[in-house]
Amino acid sequence: VRQEELAAARAALHDLMTGKRVATVQKDGRRVEFTATSVSDLKKYIAELEVQTGM
């Protein structure tokens, strides 16, 4: 499950970095929206997932 969450989070980051205004991911069973202003929060979430998956 964590691998899927990590892939979704990375895709969301890619979307935001390429101009999409809002990206949505499932985080702990709930839907979370990230915007360009919350990229740093999304990067932290990705880092947490990488630690949890041993990457």
Rank of each mutant, 00 (worst) to 15 (best):
V1I: 14
V1E: 13
V1Q: 13
V1M: 13
V1P: 06
V1D: 14
V1K: 13
V1F: 14
R2G: 13
R2D: 11
R2I: 08
R2L: 13
R2Y: 08
R2H: 13
Q3P: 09
Q3G: 09
Q3I: 14
Q3W: 15
Q3D: 06
Q3K: 14
Q3V: 13
Q3H: 10
Q3N: 12
E4W: 15
E4G: 08
E4S: 09
E4Y: 14
E4C: 12
E4T: 12
E5P: 03
E5N: 09
E5C: 11
E5R: 09
E5F: 08
E5L: 12
L6Q: 02
L6K: 01
L6R: 02
L6M: 04
L6Y: 05
A7V: 12
A7S: 12
A7Y: 09
A7K: 14
A7W: 11
A7R: 13
A7G: 06
A7D: 12
A8C: 14
A8G: 09
A8T: 07
A8I: 12
A9F: 10
A9C: 08
A9P: 00
A9I: 04
A9S: 03
A9L: 14
A9T: 03
A9N: 01
R10L: 14
R10N: 08
R10E: 05
R10Y: 15
R10M: 13
R10P: 01
R10I: 12
A11R: 14
A11M: 13
A11Q: 14
A11T: 09
A11E: 12
A11Y: 06
A12Y: 02
A12K: 02
A12T: 02
A12C: 03
A12R: 02
L13Q: 01
L13I: 03
L13V: 03
L13R: 00
L13F: 07
L13G: 00
L13Y: 10
H14I: 12
H14R: 10
H14T: 10
H14Y: 14
H14W: 12
H14K: 10
H14F: 12
H14Q: 11
H14A: 09
D15M: 10
D15A: 13
D15L: 13
D15Y: 06
D15C: 10
L16H: 00
L16M: 02
L16S: 00
L16W: 01
L16P: 00
L16I: 10
L16T: 00
L16E: 00
L16F: 02
M17G: 04
M17I: 07
M17W: 05
T18A: 04
T18E: 12
T18M: 11
T18L: 08
T18S: 14
T18C: 12
G19H: 04
G19L: 02
K20Y: 08
K20I: 08
K20V: 11
K20H: 14
K20L: 07
K20Q: 11
K20F: 04
R21L: 15
R21D: 15
R21N: 15
R21Q: 15
R21V: 15
R21Y: 12
R21E: 14
V22S: 11
V22I: 10
V22P: 03
V22H: 06
V22W: 07
V22F: 10
V22Q: 05
A23L: 02
A23T: 07
A23S: 05
A23P: 03
A23R: 03
A23W: 03
A23N: 03
A23Y: 03
A23C: 07
T24G: 07
T24S: 13
T24A: 07
V25N: 01
V25A: 04
V25Q: 01
V25F: 04
V25R: 01
V25C: 10
V25S: 02
V25P: 01
V25K: 01
V25M: 05
Q26S: 10
Q26F: 08
Q26L: 15
Q26E: 08
Q26D: 08
Q26I: 15
Q26G: 04
Q26Y: 15
Q26R: 06
K27W: 05
K27D: 03
K27G: 03
K27Y: 06
K27P: 03
K27E: 03
D28W: 01
D28K: 03
D28A: 04
D28M: 02
D28Y: 04
D28V: 02
D28P: 01
G29N: 06
G29C: 06
G29Q: 04
G29D: 05
G29I: 00
G29F: 03
R30T: 12
R30V: 10
R30N: 08
R30H: 14
R30L: 13
R30F: 09
R30D: 10
R30M: 15
R31S: 13
R31A: 13
R31G: 09
R31P: 14
V32G: 01
V32L: 11
V32N: 03
V32K: 05
E33P: 03
E33L: 07
E33V: 13
E33K: 09
E33R: 08
E33N: 05
E33I: 12
F34N: 01
F34K: 00
F34P: 00
F34T: 01
F34H: 02
T35D: 06
T35W: 06
T35L: 04
T35C: 07
T35N: 09
A36M: 11
A36C: 13
A36P: 12
A36G: 07
A36T: 08
A36L: 15
A36Y: 06
A36K: 13
A36H: 13
T37E: 15
T37F: 05
T37Y: 08
T37W: 05
T37I: 09
T37H: 12
S38A: 07
S38M: 15
S38W: 02
V39L: 15
V39C: 08
V39S: 04
V39W: 05
V39Q: 05
V39K: 04
S40P: 11
S40C: 13
S40W: 09
S40H: 11
S40M: 14
S40V: 10
D41M: 10
D41I: 11
D41K: 10
D41F: 06
L42P: 00
L42D: 00
L42Q: 00
L42N: 00
L42A: 01
L42K: 00
K43C: 09
K43Y: 14
K43G: 04
K43M: 13
K43T: 06
K44D: 13
K44W: 04
K44E: 11
K44N: 10
K44T: 05
K44V: 08
K44Q: 13
K44G: 07
K44Y: 09
K44C: 08
K44M: 13
K44R: 13
Y45E: 01
Y45V: 05
Y45W: 15
Y45Q: 02
Y45F: 07
Y45S: 01
Y45L: 06
I46P: 00
I46Y: 00
I46G: 00
I46M: 02
I46Q: 00
I46S: 00
I46L: 04
A47P: 00
A47F: 08
A47K: 12
A47H: 07
E48L: 11
E48W: 15
E48S: 05
E48Q: 13
E48D: 11
L49I: 05
L49H: 01
L49F: 02
L49S: 01
L49P: 00
E50N: 05
E50D: 05
E50R: 03
E50M: 08
E50C: 06
V51W: 14
V51R: 09
V51A: 14
V51S: 12
V51Y: 13
V51L: 14
V51P: 04
V51Q: 13
V51M: 13
Q52S: 12
Q52C: 07
Q52T: 10
Q52K: 11
Q52M: 09
T53A: 07
T53R: 07
T53N: 14
T53S: 08
T53D: 11
T53C: 08
T53I: 11
T53F: 09
G54P: 05
G54F: 10
G54N: 07
G54C: 09
G54M: 11
G54S: 13
M55R: 04
M55W: 07
M55A: 10
M55Q: 14
M55V: 15
M55L: 14
